[in-house]
Design a protein around this nucleic acid. Structure first.
Length: 389
DNA sequence: AATACGGGGTC
DNA sequence: GACCCAGTATT
């Protein structure tokens, strides 16, 4: 049968290629299921080069299941600072605590058990079971969907969940007897280094002779994927509040709520501005490339935003912050939201000795205390620029 | 099935 | 600027 034959060809060629060409990655130097697990969670939607330094630091701080289970959550979040998708860190620690308490510290090797852990979905379950335990489970990520879509000319939309399920069945059939660990990594390695999203390197591909997409000249068209919605813009006013008296040299920061975007991370106090014509115009003028601090129209817009900043912060947090001047703008794009920010230098209204009481989630932060607070990159950059100047 | 959830690299 | 990345949870 032709298809059977192609599958056989694909598996044996790919496996041999991988054994001869695999990259030397930190998590490939270990078969410790905990190490593999940590790497797989970090690698979710994140590039290998980005992960490597985090992986080293994380395992240095939390070398074992027990160490991570017993660590304070804020230490874990701090170790994850800058990596993004911070629920991964919280879920990983919750799952590791479960492994510590319910599985005697041994990462479970059963599909049901490991899938029940927080933050462990179909991909991560398959990756840990195959890579660490050599179990013949598929581990289908974006690479695998692309690589198999091309070789077998699958025209399903890889953005649809049903497509992943279909490709999982195929990926499982392809696993050579006793070679799950290397074969699954080979699939991903091919996608990461040869069968890349754009301009794949077909001439060096170990399976190009029988690659359907290549033979039809369609390697650039596959896989099919529907486009994501663009992030929605949000105008925000940020308060950079300098301390005085005993708080001189410090900045006012606050911790975010336990749920939602950037959960439990620290940030500069800020408010969302009404999506008024003014905000849109300000964003537009920035996009056009011109600074907007000088123009009369911009000055009026700043006055309105400063008033909104003070009023909204009083209403939401009960802090009375008095904006003094526009400092800078800043833009940050998440997957689904774009923040168009204006940063204002402020002072805290209250006793001149700076003894005013703060809400429980507020702190005065000295630059030397940064290692105790986890900030997302969007605020890390603003803080760094401020302290540098 | 659609959306929330970060941040950065690349062509 | 567009696309994508070793995805998962929630709705």
């Amino acid at each position: 049968m032709e298809l059977q034959d192609r599958k056989q060809f694909y598996s044996s060629r790919l496996l041999a290629w991988y054994k001869a060409n695999k990259r030397d990655l930190p998590w490939r130097r270990s078969r410790n299921p905990y190490h593999i697990w940590v790497s797989e969670v970090m690698l979710q939607q994140t590039r290998v080069e980005t992960v490597i330094p985090y992986f080293h630091r994380f395992l240095e701080k939390f070398p074992t299941v027990e160490a991570l289970a017993e660590a304070p959550e804020e230490h874990v979040l701090k170790a994850w600072e800058g990596l993004g998708y911070y629920s991964r860190a919280r879920n990983l620690q919750a799952a590791v605590r479960e492994v510590h308490e319910q599985y005697g510290g041994i990462v479970p090797s059963g599909k049901e058990d490991i899938t029940s852990l927080k933050g462990v979905g179909p991909y991560t379950a398959g990756a840990v079971l195959s890579i660490a335990y050599n179990k013949p489970e598929p581990a289908v990520d974006g690479n695998v969907m692309r690589v198999l879509s091309r070789f077998f000319v699958l025209e399903d939309d890889i953005a649809k969940p049903s497509t992943r399920v279909k490709i999982e069945r195929l990926a499982q059939e392809l696993i050579p007897e006793g070679e799950a660990s290397d074969f699954n990594q080979a699939l991903m390695e091919l996608g990461a280094t040869v069968c890349t999203p754009r301009s794949p390197h077909c001439l060096t591909c170990p399976v190009m002779e029988r690659c359907g997409a290549r033979l039809e000249g369609r390697e650039a068209e596959l896989p099919l994927k529907t486009k994501a919605k663009p992030p929605r813009p949000e105008a925000r006013a940020v308060a950079l509040v300098e301390g005085s008296g005993p708080h001189a040299g410090k900045l006012l920061v606050r911790q975010r709520p336990t749920d939602g975007l950037l959960a439990r991370m620290w940030e500069l106090p800020h408010v969302a501005l009404a999506p008024a014509p003014g905000a849109g115009a300000a964003a537009k003028s920035r996009a056009a490339g011109g600074g907007n601090a000088g123009s009369p129209a911009a000055a009026g817009a700043h006055a309105a935003r400063m008033a909104a900043l003070r009023a909204e912060l009083a209403a939401s947090d009960g802090v009375d912050v008095v904006p003094a001047e526009w400092l800078r703008d800043a833009e940050h794009t998440f997957s689904h939201i774009r923040w168009d920010m204006d940063v204002y230098r402020c002072r805290l209204n209250g006793p001149s000795d700076g003894s005013a009481a703060l809400p429980p989630n507020y702190r005065w932060l000295h630059p030397d205390e940064m290692e105790q607070y986890a900030f997302p990159n969007v605020f890390l950059r603003i803080l760094a620029d401020w302290w540098e100047a």
